[in-house]
Amino acid sequence: MLLHRTFVAALRKAMQASVVLAATSSAMAPAWAQEPLPSPTGPVILSVSGTIAVTNNGDSADFDREMLYALGLGDLETTTAWTDGIQSFRGVTLQKVLERVGAEGTTVTATALNDFVTSFPFSDAQQYGVLLAAFMNGEEMPVRDRGPLWIVYPRDDFPELQQPEYNDRWAWQLRSLEIR
Results as ranks from 00 to 15, higher is better:
12 R>E: 10
13 K>C: 13
15 M>Y: 07
16 Q>A: 15
17 A>E: 11
19 V>C: 05
20 V>K: 14
21 L>C: 05
25 S>C: 09
25 S>F: 05
26 S>Q: 14
29 A>L: 15
29 A>V: 09
36 P>D: 14
36 P>F: 03
36 P>M: 10
40 P>N: 05
41 T>A: 12
44 V>M: 09
45 I>L: 08
46 L>G: 03
46 L>H: 08
47 S>I: 00
49 S>C: 09
52 I>V: 12
53 A>F: 14
53 A>I: 08
54 V>M: 11
55 T>V: 12
57 N>D: 12
57 N>G: 07
57 N>C: 06
62 D>S: 06
65 R>I: 08
67 M>L: 11
68 L>G: 00
68 L>P: 01
70 A>Y: 02
71 L>A: 02
77 E>Y: 01
81 A>K: 11
83 T>P: 06
84 D>S: 15
86 I>M: 06
90 R>F: 02
90 R>W: 00
90 R>T: 08
92 V>M: 00
95 Q>C: 08
95 Q>K: 15
97 V>D: 01
98 L>S: 04
100 R>H: 07
100 R>W: 05
101 V>A: 08
103 A>P: 08
103 A>L: 14
103 A>Y: 13
104 E>K: 14
104 E>S: 13
104 E>L: 13
106 T>V: 09
107 T>R: 12
108 V>T: 08
109 T>C: 12
110 A>R: 12
112 A>I: 10
116 F>M: 08
118 T>Y: 03
121 P>K: 04
121 P>Y: 07
122 F>T: 06
122 F>I: 03
124 D>P: 08
128 Y>K: 01
129 G>C: 06
